[in-house]
Design a protein around this nucleic acid. Structure first.
Lengths: 251, 251
DNA sequence: TTTGCGATTATGTATAGACATTATCGCAAA
DNA sequence: TTTGCGATAATGTCTATACATAATCGCAAA
C-alpha cells in the first residue's frame, strides 16, 4: 500500500503541515470539521495509525478537538492556554461583541535599516513595508503596533490597502508561519506613546516583539505596545501539554 | 502480553508521567541517559510502539533529546525555547560563571487571605508559608520574589531554612508540578520596589505570576518582579513544537 | 410523539512485525 | 598508532490488525 512519494518529507510530517496550514491560514476556521481518519487515510494512501498519530498530536497541542463518533473539529482558541496569544483584536472583538476599530497611522516602503537587518537575518537594503497601526476597542486605545513586512516574501502586501482587516489578521490569512520568535519587555511610555494610547507619560507598558518566518524566509516583524494596566499575558500549562494554541490568532 | 494493570490510567500515560516526574524533579538531570526503548518496553511490559510514542512526544516537547544509536538523554534547558523560562538564577549563574546570592527578606506562616484563596482555589484559612526573596547577581538586584507555599501540600517547607537553595529551586527538587498558570504584566515600580531593585521609582517592571499545582493540589504561587530594563522573556516556536522546556528550571 | 435501546461509526489504545537510517564500536589493515 | 570499514544497536517510520469506548443515529415500542 505504501507508495514512496516523490518528496523527501515523511508522510506524517506532510500530513501535519497540511492540516496545520489549513487551520492556521483560516481556511478551516474554528469549528470546521476535519476529515475523518479513514478519509485522510484514503487521501494520503496510508494506514490509520499514521493519520491517528498526527491527529493525536494536533489534539495534544490544542489545535483540534476530537470526540469519539462525532469526529474532529478545529479548536476554538482558548485564552487560557496560550502565553503569547495576545488577542487578534478583530477576532476577539467579534466574539465579545465589543466595537473594534483600527487606524493605520503610517505607511511607507523603505529599505531595511541595519539594526532590523540584523534582527531578521535579511540583507541590508531589502524592501520592507512599514506600518503603524492603532487598535481601538470601545473608543479606548488597546495597542499600538509597528510592523515590518518583507515584500520579497509577501509582495502582494505592497498593493494592499488594509482597510478591511488589520495587517496582522490580513497576513495570517495569507502566510501561515512555520517559525516564530517572541520577546516580551516592560518599558515606560514616552510622551508620543502615551498620547497615542491615552495613558500617562512614564506608565509601564508591555511590549511584545514578534518575528515570523515561513520555511526560512522572513515574513514579518511586529512590535506591539500594550498599556500595562489594561493587558496581561496569560498561560496555562501542564508539562506535556505545553504551548497550546499559542499562535492560532496572531501574526 | 498485555496485562490489564490495576490502575485505571492508560499505560502510555503512566509511562509519560513517570518519565516527566523523574526529569522535572531533577532525579534525572540534563544529560542523564534515559533507558533504551527496549528496556522501558521490558519494564512496563508493553510493545516498542507504545514506548516510542511516549518518547517521541517528550522529544517533540523538548524534554529529551534523541539520537539514533546513541539513545535518549534529558535535554539541556534551552533559553531560546521557552516563553516562561525566566531563569532559575542559581542554575543560570553557575552556568554563566557569575556570582549569585539571594536573601530572604521576609518569612512568616499565615492563613491565606481572601484574594489569594480565590486565585488558588484553596479554602480561606489554609496555612501558607510566605517568603520574600531578593535575587542578586554580581551585586546587582535581578528580581524580587514574593512566594506563597501551601503547607498542606509541602509540609516540610515549614522546617526548611532555605539557606542553600532559594525557594524556587528547593521546591522544584521536591515537588514536580503537573499544572501551572502564568500571568505576565507590566507595572511601574513603587518606591519600596524601586529601593529593593535599585531602580528609579516609576520604572517599568515585568511581573511574572506563576501558580503551580500537583495533581490538583495547589503547591505554590510566586510573584516575581524584574526590572524591565534588565530582563525580557524570549521564546521561539514552530507551530507543532510549541512550548518546549517551559518549566524545566522554574517553580 | 416521545422514549429507549441496539447498531453503527469514529476515535483511543495497543500489539507485533518490518524495513530504513544513522551513529557508534571494535576489529583489521595500513 | 592511526585509519577505514563493516557489524551492530538504537531510533524513525510505517503497516495491518485488534479490541475498547463513546457518541450518535435510526428504528421500534410505549
Amino acid at each position: 500500500m505504501r507508495e514512496k512519494s516523490f518528496d523527501m518529507k515523511h508522510l506524517h510530517q506532510r500530513i501535519r503541515e497540511d492540516l496545520e496550514a489549513r487551520i492556521m491560514s483560516g481556511e478551516w476556521p474554528p469549528g470546521h470539521r476535519i476529515p475523518f481518519e479513514h478519509e485522510l487515510m484514503a487521501e494520503y494512501g496510508c494506514s490509520r495509525m499514521t493519520v491517528n498519530k498526527v491527529m493525536s498530536m494536533l489534539a495534544a497541542n490544542g489545535l483540534i478537538t476530537r470526540r469519539r463518533r462525532a469526529g474532529s473539529v478545529v479548536a476554538e482558541p482558548s485564552n487560557q492556554q496560550a502565553v503569547l496569544q495576545i488577542q487578534d483584536f478583530a477576532l476577539e472583538a467579534t466574539r465579545a461583541g465589543t466595537e473594534y476599530r483600527f487606524k493605520i497611522l503610517h505607511r511607507s516602503i523603505e529599505a531595511i535599516d541595519a539594526a532590523a537587518a540584523q534582527r531578521t537575518g535579511l540583507p541590508t537594503g531589502t524592501e520592507m513595508l512599514c506600518l503603524s497601526t492603532l487598535h481601538v476597542m470601545n473608543d479606548v486605545p488597546q495597542a499600538f503596533e509597528q510592523r515590518l513586512i518583507n515584500l520579497a516574501t509577501v509582495p502582494e502586501a505592497g498593493e494592499e490597502s488594509f482597510k478591511d482587516d488589520p495587517p496582522g489578521t490580513w497576513l495570517l490569512r495569507r502566510v501561515p508561519w512555520t517559525e516564530a520568535e517572541h520577546i516580551v519587555r516592560a518599558v515606560n511610555a514616552d510622551s508620543a506613546m502615551a498620547k497615542r494610547l491615552q495613558i500617562q507619560t512614564g506608565a509601564a507598558c508591555l511590549v511584545l516583539e514578534r518575528r515570523t518566518w515561513q520555511a526560512g524566509a522572513f515574513v514579518t516583524e511586529a512590535r506591539i505596545t500594550y498599556p500595562g494596566e489594561r493587558h496581561h499575558l496569560i498561560g496555562r500549562f501542564s508539562p506535556s501539554l505545553k504551548g497550546g494554541t499559542a499562535a492560532q490568532a496572531v501574526t
